[in-house]
Design a protein around this nucleic acid. Structure first.
Lengths: 127, 127
DNA sequence: CTAGTTGCAAAGAGTTTGCATGGCG
DNA sequence: CGCCATGCAAACTCTTTGCAACTAG
């Protein structure tokens, strides 16, 4: 019901090895031979499958490859200045999820907690 | 250096009384007499002033009026299903900010921590 | 009167859709 | 061969910009 194509392999190969988050444009720049539309369509599908997390950005959508991992002990720190996404392994994430669920009845999204702010470098650099 | 106009008053009056987050379009629908452009411009300015927090959404930007409050003991839980933004007063927010700062050197954005997930209602209702 | 503000129309930017072609199974 | 996948171009939507008219101070 779903074919394996060259483009799919190329895209998956690429984004699964990225250590940082990415935009559609970036992927397209890295893979000029794959059509823009195809990247949009595949990324959307991967997002539905749960392999990718969409990080609603300013005006351009940013995505992050998460694979199929179901581990809960981490969260993301997203720097609003430089755009970097830091993956943090930390017990605190579990505690936080549990707290939010038990005290506020809120299910944190697939254990992918994204907290916005400013990273060490940027908060020092500016001002 | 900055004038007080009718439009400004109308917009501020409206969004400061909203209990939920809003999009530019929603504001425009509520205030048909104010030009779209004006709303964009004013909201952007208010965001810079810190009275409004932008919640990078899917394709349409969502904003939330926060006023000038500098209180730190709260965070937001944003439901990805119904779009509701829950304002939660909780000591945990402070602890979390402190932890992130001390252990990860990351400054959480203006104490406005937004955590995505699914609210009680939606997580029960579906599937 | 001067400088900031407004709002229309047009331009930009990101994303989606239509449709004909090509490739997997 | 049937059906999904691809990719170009066009359509759409949200947001920004240019510019002339307007208004607060």
């Amino acid at each position: 019901m779903t074919y394996n194509t060259k483009q799919k392999d190329i895209i998956l190969e690429k984004i699964s090895k990225l250590e940082k988050d990415f935009t559609i444009k970036e992927v397209h720049n890295m893979l000029p031979d794959v059509g823009l539309t195809t990247i949009y369509r595949l990324v959307n599908k991967l997002e539905k499958d749960g392999c990718i997390t969409k990080i609603g950005n300013d005006n351009e959508a940013t995505y992050h490859y998460t694979g199929k991992c179901e581990c809960g002990n981490h969260f993301y720190l997203k720097c609003n200045k430089c755009g970097m996404l830091y993956h943090v392994d930390c017990d605190y994430a579990d505690k936080l999820s549990k707290h939010i669920l038990e005290d506020h009845g809120f299910v944190t999204s697939k254990e992918h907690i994204i907290i916005n702010g400013e990273c060490k470098t940027c908060s020092k650099g500016v001002k």
